[in-house]
Amino acid sequence: MDVFMKGLSKAKEGVVAAAEKTKQGVAEAAGKTKEGVLYVGSKTKEGVVHGVATVAEKTKEQVTNVGGAVVTGVTAVAQKTVEGAGSIAAATGFVKKDQLGKNEEGAPQEGILEDMPVDPDNEAYEMPSEEGYQDYEPEA
């Protein structure tokens, strides 16, 4: 019985440690998101679009440190934060509304985080759909 109880105690310690790591990862992701939003706020009209992409990228980098179902929630929060940063930029006159959601080359930025393969159960990952990809044929 002692062996059984000791095993359960060790398992509990492992769960607590994993929860603490997840909590730490979420806190880091939130900190990076805040950094990115402050970065966007300090940019001029020309830099705002690039700044919004930076927020998304920093958040995406930190999301990889967070495991399990938390990833889905962090990704949703990050996307809403990026959308909010863009709205703030438009409201303050840093950028025109028609410039939001495009990178410096004018290509749409939507789907940055949505296409990231995420499995809350950590069982399997699927690649994003290939609808947006084109076949590449090298020139002879």
Rank of each mutant, 00 (worst) to 15 (best):
T54E: 03
F4D: 00
E123A: 05
D119L: 10
V3F: 03
I112C: 05
N103G: 06
P108E: 14
Q24R: 13
D121K: 10
S42E: 13
L8E: 00
A78F: 14
K10F: 05
E139W: 06
K23P: 00
T33S: 07
K10P: 00
Q99R: 06
A76K: 12
S42G: 07
K34L: 05
V37C: 07
K80W: 15
Y136K: 09
G41R: 12
A30G: 01
V82F: 12
Y125L: 08
G86E: 13
A53I: 12
S42T: 04
V26T: 01
E114K: 08
T72I: 07
G7Q: 09
A78T: 08
V3C: 02
T59H: 02
E131D: 13
L100A: 13
T81S: 07
K96T: 13
A27I: 15
E61F: 05
G73M: 15
K32N: 02
T44M: 14
K80G: 04
T59N: 01
V74L: 15
Y133F: 06
A29I: 15
V15I: 12
E83S: 07
V55P: 01
Q24I: 11
I88R: 03
D119T: 10
V70A: 03
V70P: 01
Y39M: 06
V70D: 01
A76Q: 08
A19M: 07
K80M: 09
I112P: 09
S42C: 07
V37N: 00
E104T: 08
P138H: 05
V82A: 12
T64R: 11
A53S: 08
A69R: 09
V49G: 03
E83R: 07
D2K: 02
E105P: 04
K58P: 01
V95I: 13
D121E: 11
K60A: 10
T33F: 13
H50A: 14
K45V: 15
A91Y: 12
A29T: 06
F94I: 04
V77C: 11
K58G: 00
N122C: 04
V70N: 01
A90L: 14
E110A: 10
T75I: 07
A56S: 08
V52S: 02
E35R: 08
T92K: 03
E139R: 09
F94E: 03
V52A: 09
D121S: 11
K60G: 03
N103A: 05
Y39N: 04
A69Q: 09
L38Y: 12
P117N: 09
E105Y: 12
G132L: 10
V74N: 01
M127P: 04
V71N: 03
K12M: 15
K34S: 01
P108N: 11
G106K: 08
V63Q: 01
H50Q: 14
T44R: 01
E46H: 06
A76I: 13
G84I: 13
S87E: 08
E130V: 14
Q134V: 03
D119F: 03
E114P: 09
S9N: 15
K32E: 00
T75G: 07
G68P: 05
G86L: 13
A17N: 11
M127K: 13
E130N: 12
A124C: 14
K60M: 15
A29Y: 13
E137L: 07
V71W: 15
G73I: 07
S9K: 12
S129C: 07
T54S: 12
P138A: 10
G86Q: 12
K45R: 13
K80E: 02
G86Y: 13
E137G: 07
K32R: 10
G47R: 10
V63M: 15
Q79L: 12
V118T: 03
T64I: 14
G51R: 08
G67V: 11
G73P: 02
G101H: 13
E35T: 11
V82C: 07
K80I: 07
I112L: 05
A91D: 04
I112Q: 05
N65H: 04
V63N: 01
D115L: 05
A107G: 12
F4R: 00
E13F: 06
I112R: 07
I112G: 10
K12T: 09
E105G: 09
V70F: 03
G36Q: 14
T92F: 15
V26W: 15
V66G: 02
T75Y: 12
E28V: 10
K6N: 07
E114R: 10
E104V: 06
A17T: 10
A19Y: 15
V77M: 13
V26R: 00
T92L: 12
Y133H: 12
V71P: 01
H50L: 12
A91G: 06
S9Y: 13
G36W: 13
A27D: 01
G68K: 13
K80F: 14
V37I: 07
M5P: 00
Q79S: 09
Q62S: 12
G132A: 12
I112D: 05
P108G: 03
Q62I: 08
K6I: 08
E131Y: 06
Y125S: 07
V118Y: 10
G36T: 15
G86S: 13
G93N: 04
K34P: 00
K6P: 00
Y133S: 03
D135M: 09
T64Y: 10
D135R: 09
T92V: 12
G25D: 03
G86I: 15
K60R: 10
L100W: 02
P108R: 10
P120C: 07
V63T: 02
Y125C: 08
A76M: 05
P120R: 12
V37S: 01
I88V: 04
E123H: 09
M116E: 13
G67E: 02
V70I: 12
E28K: 07
M1C: 00
G47P: 02
D98C: 14
K23M: 15
D115P: 03
G25S: 12
E131L: 05
A76T: 14
N65E: 10
P108I: 04
Q24H: 12
E46L: 03
P117G: 12
E126M: 06
I88Y: 14
T22L: 05
D135V: 08
P117V: 12
K23W: 15
H50W: 12
E137F: 11
N122Y: 09
E61K: 09
A19K: 02
V95Y: 15
A140Y: 05
G73W: 13
V77F: 09
E114T: 03
Q99Y: 10
E139M: 06
K58C: 06
M5A: 02
T54H: 13
K32V: 11
V82R: 04
P138C: 08
V118H: 07
D115M: 07
V55I: 13
A56F: 09
D115I: 04
K12A: 11
Y133A: 07
N122P: 08
S129Y: 05
V66F: 14
E46Q: 06
Q109P: 07
V52P: 01
E20R: 02
V66I: 15
G68E: 13
S9P: 00
E126I: 14
V74E: 01
D2M: 05
K23I: 02
A140V: 12
K102I: 10
V95D: 05
T54I: 15
A69D: 03
V70H: 01
Q99E: 07
T22W: 15
K32F: 11
P117W: 10
A17W: 12
L113H: 11
Q24W: 07
A85P: 03
G51I: 14
N65Q: 10
G106H: 07
K45E: 00
L38A: 04
T59F: 15
V3Q: 03
A107P: 06
T64F: 13
T44G: 04
K32A: 13
T44I: 15
G51K: 07
P138M: 06
A76F: 08
V71H: 05
T22R: 01
V15E: 00
G51A: 12
S9V: 08
K97L: 11
A19N: 01
T72Y: 04
A85V: 10
P120I: 08
T75P: 01
A17Q: 10
N122M: 09
D119G: 09
G25R: 14
V26A: 02
V55T: 02
A11L: 14
F4K: 00
K43P: 00
E105M: 11
T44H: 01
S129V: 07
A85Y: 14
M5R: 10
Y125K: 11
A107C: 05
K12P: 00
